[in-house]
């Protein structure tokens, strides 16, 4: 059989890989063994892959630290405490169960006071002394205005046909 065995196409490679990993069912594995026995390319491939597999198996991980769980729970605990710092602050008070209703009532009362204060209409601001308008009469302007009125009166007399000219 030629060295470029079709078994080495992606689907065949998957089968060969499964065979080397011993993850094939018995029927498929024995059918593949028949092919491998007759195919030099697959023999080379499976031999080399099995060697890699064995080499990789030699790499065993180190045992997990004995206090791994304890460390996780300690971190969880510190996170919980960090998140509820106000709870930690109030813990001595909260422990006294008799104070809980009083604390709730106090908080409710505080909320009512704040709400009342926010609803209260604000008084209309009174004008400051600087803002009051002071009307002052300018004599020149008054005199000019009287002249204008007089001139207008004369003009209206001129415009009327029944009125004789002065």
């Amino acid at each position: 059989m030629a060295m470029d065995c079709p078994m080495r196409a992606p689907d065949g490679m998957e089968l060969l890989l499964g065979y080397c990993a011993r993850r094939l069912d018995l029927e498929t594995a024995s059918a593949l063994e028949g092919h491998i026995a007759a195919c030099p390319a697959c023999q080379v491939w499976t031999k080399s892959q099995s060697q890699v597999w064995t080499a990789l198996e030699a790499w065993e991980p180190a045992p997990v630290s004995a206090d791994f769980d304890r460390q996780i729970y300690a971190r969880l605990q510190s996170e919980r405490e960090g998140r509820g710092w106000w709870r930690t602050l109030l813990r001595p008070w909260l422990r006294l169960s008799g104070l809980r209703p009083a604390l709730s009532l106090g908080l409710a009362g505080l909320l009512v006071v704040v709400a009342f204060w926010m609803q209260k209409p604000k008084a209309t601001p009174s004008p400051t002394p600087n803002q009051t308008q002071t009307e002052t009469l300018d004599p020149d302007r008054l005199e000019k205005a009287l002249d204008d009125v007089d001139m207008l009166r004369q003009l209206s007399l001129v415009g009327t046909p029944d009125t004789p000219l002065r």
Binding site: S48, V52, A55
Partner: peptide, 10 residues
Amino acid sequence: TLRLRLAHMA
């Protein structure tokens, strides 16, 4: 890649 790199370990 692993087959090539680890071939000498056979």
